[in-house]
Computed example of a mutant assay.
Amino acid sequence: MPQLNLVYFAWVREAIGRDEERVERPAPDVTIRAFIARLAEQGGGYCQAFAEPDRLRAALDQRFVPLDSPIGEARELAIFPPVTGG
């Protein structure tokens, strides 16, 4: 099966306890929001990191996308809190 590289940043990474992992890529029509809901069901740090999905941002293959975007054939999904700066 095709793999999806998950990359985590900031407090998402801290809650899960790892920078990245490889998982089986879901069906192309599965949205990022639905996929992270499945990850949250694993409990522990995943549940903590993904408890409030509206606080998260995502990028597919290094392009920012809304959480309701389908994962499609992406090779990488990055998940992180909103970026702030001055």
Rank of each mutant, 00 (worst) to 15 (best):
A10Y: 08
D19A: 15
D19N: 14
E24T: 15
G72T: 11
R38G: 15
C47Y: 11
P70S: 13
W11M: 01
A40H: 03
P70Y: 11
A58W: 00
Q48C: 03
R25N: 03
Q3S: 14
R25M: 01
T31G: 00
A40D: 04
Q42M: 06
L67R: 05
R33H: 09
L56G: 00
A78R: 10
Q62T: 06
G72D: 09
G17F: 05
L39Q: 13
S69E: 14
D54M: 04
A10G: 07
A49D: 04
T31N: 00
V7A: 09
F50P: 03
R63Q: 15
A10D: 09
P70Q: 10
G86F: 00
E14Y: 00
I79S: 08
R22G: 11
Q3I: 13
V83G: 11
F35Q: 04
V30W: 05
L77V: 09
E41R: 13
L77K: 08
L77A: 11
A40Q: 07
A37Y: 02
I36T: 09
E24W: 00
P2S: 13
V12C: 01
R63K: 15
V12W: 03
E52G: 00
R55D: 13
R13K: 11
Q3H: 10
M1S: 15
R55K: 14
M1Y: 08
G72K: 08
R75M: 11
P53G: 01
G44Y: 03
E14G: 03
V83R: 12
A58L: 03
Q62A: 10
F50Q: 06
E73Y: 10
L39R: 14
G72E: 09
R22P: 00
P28Q: 13
N5Y: 08
E41Q: 15
R13A: 07
L4C: 04
E76W: 07
P70R: 09
P28V: 09
A27N: 10
Q62H: 14
E24F: 03
C47R: 15
T31K: 00
I71K: 12
T31V: 02
D61Q: 07
E24N: 07
A27G: 11
E73P: 06
A74K: 11
Q62G: 03
A78P: 12
R57L: 01
L56W: 02
E73M: 12
P70W: 12
F50L: 06
